[in-house]
Design a protein around this nucleic acid. Structure first.
Lengths: 230, 230
DNA sequence: TCAAAAGTGTTCAGCGTACACCCATGT
DNA sequence: ACATGGGTGTACGCTGAACACTTTTGA
């Protein structure tokens, strides 16, 4: 009960989550096959409704955890979609969020339960409602953020090689990057700590592993946020 | 009636508008004094509720027109605020929009009706709820946009001098800009058309008036939007 | 004649970009 | 020995930033 009751309309408010993962050098998107009408059997973003007793952010975290089993991950509001007929089953305002997750930590069990599958960017099927629009916007946002922020570590395992990191950037921007320039720039940011270990998986010589310096990373991201990135 | 009825919660969804104007070399913000509880008598952004039969964008335009009398102006979604207790009178999710208006076209009659007043940026009083947060975010967004886009023409009269335009940029960024560098850069963008007229108001010598080239301006803003700016 | 704003070019540093070769090692 | 990915340095052009003087004209 609020003092607004009876005076104004209420609306359904939903969350839709654009969930990015990175695996085998490819940027991927987690989609689910709808199990209920409308649009049953069509591919869709993971979503859910915002309850009356939870914040919108909490609802976004709750819904993401339901699908992925992940609790504290990168999750950021993208945009609120409010066209009258965007959901063919009725008036629903949707707040889209995008998440970056390390695909290794993803709970496949949960995924199966929801009929979820990972798609590479060039294989994304057409999606229900305005979900394709949301995905396009999320990709643009992700590209833009990486230009001036060392974002995207969330998509990698804790220890990674510079080549893996470069592949991530190449996957996000969908173009090749010069190895020397990339290393020069990323190392000059000072957010990487070189480890003594090498990864021997992908080459005979082995590549040094890095982890990122959380303090400097947090400092940079918060400082750059003064520049605003929502 | 939708197929979601009864299954999920509905919520009040509101709009809050951050309305920027530019006058006498100063960037200004339009605020209203609340005439109803809660927080009666406190300064607030202009707002209103989203109805069940209008899109969120339409609601934002409607609310802005109510206060300013202006119909087709620059209006862009900023962010959706969804904390549980953000409105002390009950659970309201608010989608904030920011608008840029030419202060000359503003309908003062309407403003008086709502108890609206213009405040310069350094005089903004403390605002109800999370409205101060919204304003801060809008200012950051405005700064960022002007860095790579020739935004802000909406805030000026149709014909303006380069000095006026520079003052607008200085007001937005709150720092002085070198005259030569500013002119060089803005003219190189090719969005300005120099007129034969001079404005003699502000100097004896007179300053050439410019208007902006709408085609090039629209092209640039849409092209740059590929770079994404929401 | 003088005050007040308009108008105008050059220099420098830093950054992004292009570009090619040697190294280490497992097979 | 060779194939495979790892690792490194230099040169150039562009852009942003700093910087000072002349012009016009109404009062």
């Amino acid at each position: 009960m609020t003092i607004y009751d009876g005076v104004h309309d209420k609306n359904f408010v939903a969350i839709d989550s654009i969930i990015f993962g990175f695996d085998q050098g490819r940027l991927k998107l987690l989609l689910i096959k709808r199990k209920m009408p409308p649009m049953e059997g069509q591919w869709s973003l993971m979503g859910g409704f915002v309850g009356s007793h939870e914040s919108v952010d909490d609802a976004a975290y709750r819904i993401l955890e339901n699908l992925t089993g992940l609790k504290s991950i990168f999750l950021e509001q993208l945009y609120a979609y409010g066209d009258l007929d965007r959901d063919s089953a009725g008036r629903v305002i949707s707040v889209a969020y995008y998440a970056l997750i390390n695909i290794d930590n993803y709970d496949e069990e949960l995924g199966r339960k929801y009929g979820a599958e990972w798609f590479t960017m060039d294989e994304i099927p057409s999606l229900v409602f305005d979900h394709s629009t949301m995905v396009q916007k999320a990709i643009r946002r992700l590209k833009r953020k990486t230009i001036i922020q060392p974002i995207g570590f969330e998509l990698l395992p804790p220890k990674f090689t510079l080549t893996q990191l470069q592949q991530l950037y190449e996957a996000i921007h969908q173009k090749e990057i010069d190895k020397r320039n990339f290393r020069k720039k990323i190392l000059s940011m000072g957010v990487l700590n070189k480890l003594d270990e090498k990864d021997k998986e992908s080459s005979k010589r082995g590549a040094f592993l890095y982890k990122f310096n959380k303090e400097k990373y947090d400092y940079l991201t918060s400082k750059e946020n003064l520049f605003d990135f929502i």
